[in-house]
């Protein structure tokens, strides 16, 4: 699916799904979810080479890991709309015995989920592991992961960022949902991240800033495979507005 109007319609549908899921159970994180709708639609419909016939090992396909597991509503919506599981299942979000737990888990067997997330700060490490396995398997597909900006306050991220640079893990793209907000307020007041571009660059990463993080075409352009040609570790600071309505 590459027709941009069709994709825009899908983004609108995904936003509806997010609101319906969160509203139904009066809990969940709509803010980050709504802000990342275009990113997910672009990822799953244009950028990633993936198989909706889910296989945990994901050999010879691109993989995605959601580090900021709290934005599960957007992840679930896009997985369902891509054909990983029935769209009706979105109605079970956050309910007892549902496969769509508040934060993604694997033991419920939800297709498309490869690792549990929710406790922040762990996704880049897992993505690095999957990227290393791809190298060992001579599999030249790419591993994507998404992190929150507040999430970068967790130290483990920086262990992972250091590792990837030191060990030339170049089949990995990390995107930061750079919305400037977290639970207790603006990231700048809770714990300022400083100059993120400079931080990543000093760790040996190449940084691309997508100023219009809600512009599908910009997201697609910056993530195209040709961008990855020089095989450098990349991070994308995807600037998205954080829509209010946090779960507190």
């Amino acid at each position: 699916m590459t027709d941009i109007n069709q994709l825009e319609n899908l983004v609108t549908q995904v936003r509806r799904d997010i609101l319906r899921q969160v509203h139904k159970v009066n809990s969940g994180h709509p803010g980050g979810s709504l802000g990342c709708a275009e990113f997910f639609v672009a990822l799953y419909n244009v950028l990633m080479e993936h198989d909706t016939n889910f296989n945990m090992d994901g050999k010879n396909e691109d993989l995605f890991f959601l580090s900021n597991g709290h934005i599960s509503p957007v992840f679930y919506s896009v997985l369902a709309r891509s054909g990983y599981f029935p769209v009706e299942e979105l109605n079970t979000f956050r309910l007892l015995n549902s496969r769509l737990q508040g934060h993604p888990t694997t033991h419920e067997g939800l297709p498309g989920i490869r690792v549990a997330s929710g406790s922040l700060g762990q996704g880049i490490s897992v993505a690095i592991g999957a990227a290393l396995a791809k190298k060992l398997n001579n599999d030249n597909k790419i591993v994507y992961t998404l992190c929150g900006d507040g999430e970068l306050q967790e130290g483990q991220n920086w262990e992972a960022i250091m590792y990837a640079a030191g060990n030339k893990v170049d089949n990995l793209i990390v995107t930061i949902d750079y919305n400037g907000q977290q639970i207790d307020g603006a990231t700048d007041t809770v714990l300022p991240l400083g100059n993120l571009t400079a931080k990543f660059e000093s760790f040996g990463w190449e940084v691309l800033t997508i100023k219009e993080g809600n512009n599908l075409e910009a997201i697609i352009k910056y993530n195209e495979r040709s961008q990855i040609k020089n095989r450098k570790r990349k991070t994308h600071l995807c600037v998205t507005p954080h829509c209010d309505g946090q779960w507190r």
């Binding site: 490490s125 060992l136 398997n137």
Partner: peptide, 18 residues
């Protein structure tokens, strides 16, 4: 390196791919 949290995460990721 001295980064055990990262080690556990990388180990988890390595299982994906067998």
């Amino acid at each position: 390196g001295i980064a055990e949290a990262n080690m556990m995460g990388i180990a988890a990721g390595l299982t994906i791919g067998g």
